[in-house]
């Protein structure tokens, strides 16, 4: 293994390669398609974990977590349960991210306090409605249907409704969630751009 210093140098010099990525995917599943699906599954959870824990940049933290796990596997670590292992690494990444944010807190406290939260939310929703309508219309009709059906059911029947929708589409529930997540992220960024344009105008 070498000294801690040697390990640190190795970590610093290590670079993500196609081979390392292949090793990581192989550790998820021997079947390439299933491995890709499992990767998406892990990344979706990581994104929500960082979001729920108040991380400012969940995308970056999720990518950093996966990169560290890939490096570990590339260095020869045998991982029995990739889901749990990723969660363990994600907690470390979160701690580092929170420490980083702590350093910024001083500067943030200097900023103006938030005004009335509820009014802000209502205003933001009103601003976004037009943009969301326009972004929805830009989606192909099959994707419009998918997002509408995905969010259609009331609480309690939603999981069953989504299972039926996945069965109708001939895909797994996980694949359906990944598609809905991508669509929702796509809509979110489309709405963000639209609001930015409105503000500039």
């Amino acid at each position: 293994m070498g000294s801690p210093r040697e390990s640190a140098v190795r970590r610093r010099d290590w670079q993500l390669s196609t081979l390392a990525l292949e090793r990581f995917l192989a550790s998820l599943d021997s079947d390439r398609d299933r491995a890709a699906e499992r990767y998406e599954h892990i990344r979706t959870r990581l994104l929500r974990f960082f979001e729920w824990r108040g991380c400012a940049f969940p995308d970056e933290c999720a990518d950093e977590t996966i990169t560290r796990v890939i490096r570990k596997i590339d260095e020869g670590a045998a991982i029995q349960d990739p889901d749990s292992y990723c969660y363990g690494v994600a907690r470390l990444v979160l701690l580092e991210s929170l420490k980083e944010r702590e350093r910024e807190r001083e500067a943030l406290t200097q900023m103006q306090p938030l005004s009335l939260w509820v009014d802000d939310v209502q205003t933001d929703i009103e601003h976004r409605l037009e943009c969301l309508r326009s972004c929805m219309k830009r989606l192909p009709s099959d994707q419009q249907t998918l997002i509408a059906e995905y969010y259609r059911h009331d609480s309690g029947s939603r999981i069953e409704g989504r299972k039926r929708l996945a069965a109708t589409l001939g895909i797994g529930l996980n694949a359906l969630r990944i598609r809905a997540h991508r669509l929702s992220a796509h809509l979110g960024s489309c709405v963000g751009r639209c609001v930015e344009r409105q503000e500039l105008a």
Binding site: I125, R133, T145
Partner: peptide, 24 residues
């Protein structure tokens, strides 16, 4: 952010999907 954006998008999405002209 980004939790605030998700909350707002979820609420807005609910409203848009409930509109008579939206959706299939």
């Amino acid at each position: 952010r980004p939790r605030r954006d998700r909350l707002i998008l979820t609420i807005a999405l609910g409203r848009v999907l409930a509109e008579p002209t939206q959706g299939p």
